[in-house]
């Protein structure tokens, strides 16, 4: 028994009991949110490059005010302050990216309040919101201050040495094509050397970020692929029928908020469908509504509306695309649904 004395037995007084499983993949909400922020970094750099340093100011104000408003509301609602999960920062950054670089700062703060307060916190915080908060903020601003939201600056190459690019107002490629004028060439569109909101112009940077998120399995590839694909397909068919600049599929896919919306806003976990099948339906719906608004609506741009409309349909999509559990007969499942 002398050996027994040297054996250390565990102290059982401080054990934790919990339900299985006892392993976890150690993923967490902050990890996801900060990865999304990292994926948006290339687009942020591109926006500073093309629009000047004021772009950074707009983005920072949106992020800080979103976080501050969330903290304040959590305090008022007597809840755990949830800004540590990073979701308010993502909302703020996305909201800022949908604003023009010339937006007054008070507008950023109002937009943040609407996005976080009315878009998220009134529904009980992250997880409860039916609509993408950033889209809610953008649409509210678009309705409230249409002129400030559609004042675009002319972009011409590097603007790193400027506070904001020359204040001559220009038009976005989508506004041009809506008036049936030819838009800019492919490389301008692809690299972002065009007018538009802060974060939406540089297609290259957005695709890099989006592919990064898909590779890490944070977003489903189905949403961007089917969203962009649907827009391309419909405008492509229209272009083949009547080849005028208004229907040019290249301009439609590479300009406006499509890349930003498809990779970062439509893929918002909370407001998009749960499973792959639902994601496809959701993305195709977004694509159809976007194209309809762009081609036949009175707005040149329709991404945020499309996303909000499909957000509203998400519970319905979820309900009809929910699979049958393993071994459940088709009839039994339908009867119970």
């Amino acid at each position: 028994m002398s050996e027994q004395t040297t054996i250390r037995m565990p102290d059982t007084s401080k054990l934790v009991v919990s339900s299985s499983p006892h392993y976890h993949d150690m993923g967490s909400i902050p990890k996801i949110m900060f990865t999304v922020l990292a994926a948006l970094a290339p687009a942020v750099f591109a926006s500073i490059y093309f629009f000047g340093w004021r772009a950074l100011l707009v983005l920072s104000v949106c992020m800080v005010s979103c976080a501050a408003i969330e903290a304040l509301l959590c305090r008022l609602m007597r809840r755990r302050i949830s800004i540590g999960d990073g979701s308010a920062l993502v909302t703020g950054l996305l909201l800022g990216m949908t604003l023009p670089v010339t937006s007054p700062l008070w507008m950023c703060i109002v937009g943040s309040f609407i996005a976080i307060g009315l878009g998220k916190m009134v529904y009980g915080g992250l997880g409860g919101n039916p609509f993408n908060p950033a889209s809610v903020g953008r649409v509210a601003l678009l309705l409230a201050c249409p002129s400030a939201m559609t004042t675009w600056v002319t972009v011409s190459g590097c603007a790193l040495n400027k506070w904001v690019v020359d204040a001559t107002t220009g038009a976005t490629p989508l506004e041009l094509v809506a008036q049936n004028q030819p838009g800019p060439g492919f490389w301008s569109l692809f690299l972002g050397n065009i007018g538009g909101s802060i974060g939406e112009t540089c297609t290259l940077a957005l695709i890099v970020g989006g592919v990064f998120l898909i590779a890490l399995k944070i977003i489903r590839w189905q949403i961007p692929v089917f969203f962009i694909g649907t827009v391309f397909l419909i405008t492509g068919i229209a272009y083949m029928v009547s080849p005028c600049p208004k229907f040019n599929p290249m301009t439609h896919v590479l300009s406006g908020g499509l890349m930003l919306g498809a990779f970062f806003m439509a893929t918002d976990m909370v407001t998009s469908p749960l499973n792959r099948k639902g994601a496809v339906v959701f993305a195709i719906g977004c694509g159809i509504i976007t194209t309809i608004i762009r081609l036949w609506g009175s707005y040149p741009e329709g991404i945020s509306y499309a996303i909000l409309i499909m957000n509203a349909l998400t519970p319905l999509i979820d309900r009809y695309t929910a699979g049958r559990p393993f071994g459940v007969a088709r009839k039994a499942s339908q009867k119970n649904a």
Partner: peptide
């Protein structure tokens, strides 16, 4: 107290865990 229970705040749930 024998252990710290870490889980859903409900008696039946706790009963089912140890």
């Amino acid at each position: 107290k024998q252990a710290f229970y870490n889980g859903v705040n409900d008696c039946l749930n706790a009963m089912l865990v140890a």
